[in-house]
Design a protein around this nucleic acid. Structure first.
Lengths: 107, 107
DNA sequence: TTGTTATATCGCAATATTACGATAATAAAG
DNA sequence: CTTTATTATCGTAATATTGCGATATAACAA
């Protein structure tokens, strides 16, 4: 075995888990913070910034992209990413209500 | 290879990642929600509620415990868990400021 | 003590993640 | 077209996670 049984849970629970999975690696947290500071992202900057290999950064970026958090545009010869603000707000609200609901109901 | 290079990142980034990792499975999201609704948790209830085996639930509970989110007390012959509210608020604030800071700086 | 019930841990198999070198693809520059 | 720079993908090795049956542990009941 070893396959997550996601079909046992509702879609909100699965969505929280899916977003959390992306945030569950410090490199991806750092990448998101860096992109938001720069209002853009050049992959080679991230390589320098983090000390990870270029291939690794690229993989992390594609994990973040998978859940729709990145918008990419070309700027000169570098691929320029920026955070999809709508999507970010959606997830922010999702987590906020998750955290708050449990706080309210809690012992 | 295959070991996360957490030493490359700061402690806040690692803490966010660590908490996110716990939330990165729908079973654990469901368990937290269930415990907060019941203001207690009986492991066998979770087995029924989720459809996972008892051993699996117990493992998920110990992941949640690891980051200090559960307080356990004996109540009759059942182990009764409840969420550590202080710790929950700490993490809630951590995520809230992470989400908000990026929103503000974002494109 | 013995039996019952609830939870934790062990051991294992299946799968997923992480990291990186090598290499391919893409686009600007000459 | 060729070169150069940047990013993506492939292949692979190391490690981590997930799930469950089997078994151990703990507490109450009789």
């Amino acid at each position: 075995m070893g396959v997550s049984k996601s079909e046992l849970f509702n879609s909100q629970q699965n969505e929280i888990a899916q977003v959390a999975k992306v945030l569950a690696h410090p490199a991806r947290v750092a990448i998101l913070q860096y992109i938001s500071r720069q209002d853009a992202c050049i992959c080679s900057d991230l390589v320098e910034e983090t000390g990870l290999a270029q291939a690794t950064i690229s993989q992390h970026l594609s994990e973040i992209k998978k859940i729709g958090l990145l918008k990419g545009n070309f700027q000169g010869k570098n691929l320029c990413y920026c955070i999809d603000k709508d999507r970010w707000e959606t997830f922010s609200t999702l987590f906020e209500s998750f955290f708050n609901r449990i706080s309210q109901q809690c012992c």
